[in-house]
């Protein structure tokens, strides 16, 4: 059974991932994913699925709460991914 927050996170994750991969070619994927990519994903979600916020409101979530949690999870996710990539690099160098 999926939680409400996971549903929101999954919906914004797709926008963030696509945007961060594109930015990743020119800059840093991890930093973008944890910061600017999250903001872009909120804008894209608002544009495409903004009316679905009422699904979360009716359960007692506010927009701020959903966004704060998402940024936090994205930052942790980016950090884990970055650490994993660095470890893999070191292993191959050794």
């Amino acid at each position: 059974m999926r939680s409400l927050f996971l549903q929101y996170y999954r919906d914004t994750f797709i926008y963030n991932l696509v945007f961060s991969i594109i930015v990743g070619f020119a800059g840093n994927f991890y930093i973008c994913f944890a910061t600017f990519g999250s903001l872009v994903s909120f804008l894209a979600y608002q544009y495409h699925k903004g009316h679905e916020y009422y699904f979360y409101y009716n359960y007692g979530y506010t927009k701020n709460e959903l966004m704060t949690k998402t940024i936090l999870v994205n930052a942790i996710f980016a950090f884990i991914l970055f650490s994993f990539a660095q470890c893999t690099k070191l292993m191959f160098k050794a």
Partner: peptide, 25 residues
């Protein structure tokens, strides 16, 4: 007023349930 109060639920004019889910989910 805030949705956090859990005092009032609201059906908005536009459809608000995620369309990629089933009613069961």
């Amino acid at each position: 007023p805030s949705p956090k109060n859990k005092l009032i639920a609201m059906l908005p004019q536009d459809s608000f349930l995620p369309r990629d889910l089933t009613p069961s989910e």
